[in-house]
Amino acid sequence: MTATPTRPADAPPSAGPTPAARLATVLRLRELPVTIALIALVTVTYLANPLFLSSQGVKDLLLNSTIVIILAVGQALVIITRNVDLSVGSILGLVAFSTGTLFATVPGIPIVVVLLAGMALGALLGAINGLLVTVAKVPALVITLGTLYIYRGLNNAWAGGTQYFAGDRPDAFGALSVDTVAGFPLITLIALLVVAVVAIYMVGTRPGRDLYAIGSDPDAAKLFGIPVARRVFLAFLTNGVLAGIAGVLYASRFNSVGATTGTGLELDVVAAAVVGGVAIFGGSGTVVGAALGAILLTTITSALTALRVDKFWQQAIVGVLILAAIIIDRIAAVRTAKKLRLSEARDV
């Protein structure tokens, strides 16, 4: 047994990573495939039909993706902890309907109050999910499948045949998804703010990093002293709050809210996160990637229309994209594992 020699020659120069190393880092980014796909899609569509990127076209693209962006960011948080929340579509529906109800029954209620009420309702529903998952220690897939039904049932029971239309809401609320600042609709700006805040939280704070540790290996995270249950609860709570925001914005963006609002949205949202590079088994991926995935999936619909592709192909293409994302992820994982094996073999 020889003492391990220190190897100053191998240490990276203190000036920082070389351009090649920096390039390698960029190439390894999990968001790269979805970014390239998005750029390629937009470029091809624009070349074929320049109207696609007119100011109205861009605005429509942004408006269509806003709701899914917010939901995908929340879902990414949950998936990173190796859980999943299938109840988001139902939470969104309940919050959207309660938004409509608030405007209709309390005339002159400030929009901020409605937004806060929506967030509070979302937080409550998310907290129920989180409590069931962490206290009962039952897989999130099952619990949130159950709450998907329960929340939807509550929404049905509450709404019945009632629907609230845009006319029932104050003009200023509807204007949120019409007025633009520098080309961005206001609700999209809210979504971007959400992405920025959550992204910084995930990168720069201890609880944010903990979520990755929990997703990589829950047992190791526990041994390491991370309060796993509390962090997972926090992820579900945050996801509920974000679904609440999305629900309020949904009421602003779309004409009618009723008993079936948001039905079937959950799988789109999970798909957006997966396409955006969030590994379904937790531990890797970023909320920015999830947001890009949401933009890609919603942009495809508009792009196909602009390209005059048969609209019936759209869902099949979404399916292919999801599968492509998983396969790319798999290839990357295999290559990383190989590289780790090689470098460990060298170090022995």
Partner: peptide, 10 residues
């Protein structure tokens, strides 16, 4: 989830 979208799309 991917083939759910794919088969329904087909």
């Amino acid at each position: 989830i991917g083939t759910l979208a794919l088969f329904r799309g087909l």
